[in-house]
């Protein structure tokens, strides 16, 4: 019996079962978060313990287990944005909408996600709302820009 041959055979299947992260990513994209019952489903279908699905779902910052509001605000807290006043934007959102990182406002209007560098540092500080970029923001401009997202 050749050990490496057997290992190669097993490895083929290991690679298949490694798709947990991409699977969760696709579910997340579809629903905006990971609903609890989907985690059960995934565990069952992949024949892995729920605890393993849960550990992956909570380890990675890209996943949220809570439903998302009507609009997603991505606030960049990368270094360039930090230096140019992003923390003040965060304060403004906290004051005005009671938003914290990863949380949804009580009226379910906004969900806030603090991200690290959107790769558009020339536009710092940057906020992206539902895919639209707002550059060179200050608290006042940001709150005005958010008016059109009901």
């Amino acid at each position: 019996m050749n050990q490496t041959e057997i290992r190669d055979i097993v490895d083929e299947y290991l690679e298949e079962s490694a798709q947990l992260v991409p699977i969760l990513q696709d579910i997340h994209r579809k629903y905006g978060y990971l609903p609890e019952e989907t985690l059960h489903h995934v565990a069952e279908r992949l024949h892995i313990p729920l605890s393993r699905v849960y550990s992956v779902a909570t380890f990675y910052g890209a996943f949220s287990l809570k439903p998302r509001g009507r609009h997603l605000i991505s606030l960049c807290m990368g270094t360039a944005c930090h230096l140019q006043g992003a923390p003040r934007l965060l304060h403004a959102l906290k004051d005005k909408f009671k938003l914290e990182d990863g949380e949804t406002s009580p009226d379910e209007r906004f969900t806030l996600k603090v991200v690290n560098c959107l790769g558009t540092c020339a536009l710092a500080p940057v906020v992206v709302v539902d895919g639209t970029y707002f550059d060179g923001m200050n608290p006042d401009k940001l709150l005005k820009a958010l008016r059109r997202f009901e």
């Binding site: 490694a18 947990l20 992260v21 992956v56 380890f59 990675y60």
Partner: peptide, 20 residues
């Protein structure tokens, strides 16, 4: 998955294997 530590070589490989 949006984790800085996954840029580290062994963590990246663990992540590719579907682990944390």
């Amino acid at each position: 998955g949006g984790a800085f530590v996954c840029g580290e070589s062994t963590a990246l490989m663990a992540s590719l294997q579907g682990q944390i």
